[in-house]
Simulated scan of single mutants.
Amino acid sequence: MSSGKSSLVLFHGVTMSAAAWDGVVPRLTDHHDVVAPTALGHRGGPAALDRPVKVRDIVDAAERMLDERGIAKAHLAGNSLGGWMAIELALRGRALSVCALSPAGFWDGGGHGQTAAVAKLRRMVALVRLTRPIQPLALRSAVIRRLSMRDIACHADRLTPAQALAATTDLLGCAVTDDVLGTEEQIASVPELPCPITLAWSEKDAILPPSVNGRIAQERFPQARFEILRGVGHVPMIDDPQLVAATILATTGAVPVITNVRAPSSDADR
Results as ranks from 00 to 15, higher is better:
residue 4 G to H: 10
residue 164 A to S: 15
residue 243 L to K: 04
residue 7 S to H: 13
residue 106 F to P: 08
residue 53 V to K: 07
residue 153 A to M: 12
residue 99 C to T: 04
residue 123 R to A: 15
residue 190 V to P: 00
residue 43 R to S: 14
residue 139 L to K: 09
residue 214 G to W: 10
residue 8 L to P: 09
residue 27 R to W: 11
residue 80 S to T: 06
residue 30 D to H: 04
residue 97 S to R: 11
residue 226 F to H: 14
residue 216 I to E: 13
residue 162 A to W: 12
residue 183 T to W: 07
residue 191 P to Y: 02
residue 141 S to C: 06
residue 221 F to W: 12
residue 64 R to L: 15
residue 161 P to A: 10
residue 246 A to Q: 15
residue 221 F to D: 06
residue 66 L to F: 07
residue 151 D to P: 04
residue 57 D to K: 00
residue 149 M to I: 01
residue 205 D to C: 07
residue 159 L to G: 06
residue 88 E to G: 03
residue 115 T to V: 15
residue 142 A to H: 08
residue 234 H to F: 09
residue 84 W to L: 05
residue 98 V to N: 13
residue 123 R to S: 15
residue 6 S to T: 07
residue 124 M to F: 15
residue 149 M to D: 09
residue 55 V to Q: 02
residue 132 R to F: 07
residue 141 S to W: 10
residue 256 P to G: 00
residue 49 L to C: 10
residue 19 A to H: 14
residue 242 Q to T: 10
residue 210 P to N: 13
residue 30 D to N: 11
residue 210 P to V: 15
residue 175 A to V: 08
residue 116 A to T: 12
residue 242 Q to C: 02
residue 71 I to H: 06
residue 142 A to D: 11
residue 191 P to V: 02
residue 57 D to W: 03
residue 90 A to M: 11
residue 101 L to H: 00
residue 108 D to I: 03
residue 135 Q to M: 11
residue 60 D to G: 03
residue 192 E to I: 01
residue 178 D to H: 08
residue 78 G to L: 01
residue 110 G to I: 09
residue 232 V to I: 05
residue 262 R to T: 13
residue 171 L to P: 02
residue 266 S to I: 09
residue 134 I to F: 12
residue 27 R to E: 13
residue 16 M to K: 00
residue 214 G to R: 11
residue 64 R to Y: 09
residue 27 R to T: 05
residue 112 H to F: 15
residue 211 S to V: 14
residue 57 D to V: 01
residue 89 L to Y: 08
residue 139 L to Q: 07
